[in-house]
């Protein structure tokens, strides 16, 4: 014989908890090695690869950087960046965003040096990459002057979760109906503390400001790792070991 009973169970589980924890651990581990991780996000063609090429030209061999670049198919971006950086192309097949597992796999395939900067060039898409924490220390969203100044309000999560807005292709400002002020105003309704830098990667305009911003952010990470470990909404407080700065900045 059997008897049937109904039970009500309080579960209260965040479905993304395991992923958040993994991202926080990755972020902490990278900070401990002195590697500042930058997740570059934008719509396709906004100029992520060009910004990295310009960054390499500005810094020359003075900085130890590596790049992981995500696309659905081809090695075109990796081929462009290979003259400048150790680079791995992450081809996602059909997926419209990168996930941490893919990033960790790509990182393991790079030469095992202590990098000062790891740039992750995400798949061009303003929707899904916003929901995937790759263990980065900063998320940088690019908007090009050719794609319109109305994007922040239409893709709020991407702008809410980014720390820096880079306006690209400023050399075209005279030819397109685009207002940097309107863009920034729209973005700051969503993320009040969002910083902004204007660049033209082809002419190197603004690139020194961008590179100085990166340097400053990395120095802040080296001085206060806890601040960056907490970024990305960690499920629990992580114990951050003492910082290690074993190589020259």
């Amino acid at each position: 014989m059997s008897q049937s009973t109904i039970q009500h169970i309080e579960v209260h589980t965040d479905l993304a908890e395991a992923k958040k924890r993994a991202a926080c651990e990755f972020r902490t581990s990278m900070a401990n090695q002195g590697t500042f991780v930058v997740n570059l996000v934008s719509s396709p063609g906004a100029g992520k690869t060009s910004l990295l090429e310009a960054t390499a030209k500005h810094w020359g061999a003075s900085h130890q950087c590596a790049v992981l670049v995500g696309d659905l198919a081809t090695h075109r971006d990796a081929d462009r960046l290979a003259p400048f950086f150790p680079v791995r192309q992450l081809t996602t097949g059909g997926a419209c965003h990168l996930e941490l597992e893919l990033v960790a796999r790509g990182l393991a395939e790079l030469p095992q040096l202590p990098y000062q900067y790891l740039f992750i060039e995400n798949v061009g898409n303003l929707v899904c990459p916003a929901s995937h924490d790759l263990g980065e220390h900063v998320r940088v969203v690019l908007v090009s002057t050719t794609e319109g100044d109305d994007k922040p309000g239409k893709y709020p999560k991407m702008f809410r979760t980014s720390q820096l807005l880079v306006v690209t292709k400023t050399d075209l400002l005279n030819y397109v109906p685009f207002s940097v002020d309107n863009l920034v105003q729209d973005a700051r309704r969503i993320q009040g503390s969002l910083e902004t830098i204007e660049v033209c990667s082809l002419s190197q305009f603004g690139i020194s400001i961008w590179c100085d911003w990166l340097t400053k952010q990395r120095e802040q990470m080296l001085q206060n790792q806890t601040l960056f470990a907490e970024r990305g909404n960690c499920p629990t407080q992580l114990a951050v070991p003492p910082k290690v700065t074993s190589f020259a900045r």
Binding site: I6, Q7, I9, H12
Partner: peptide
């Protein structure tokens, strides 16, 4: 979040 489940045993 998964908040609650009701199960019949």
């Amino acid at each position: 979040h998964l908040q609650t489940i009701d199960i019949e045993l």
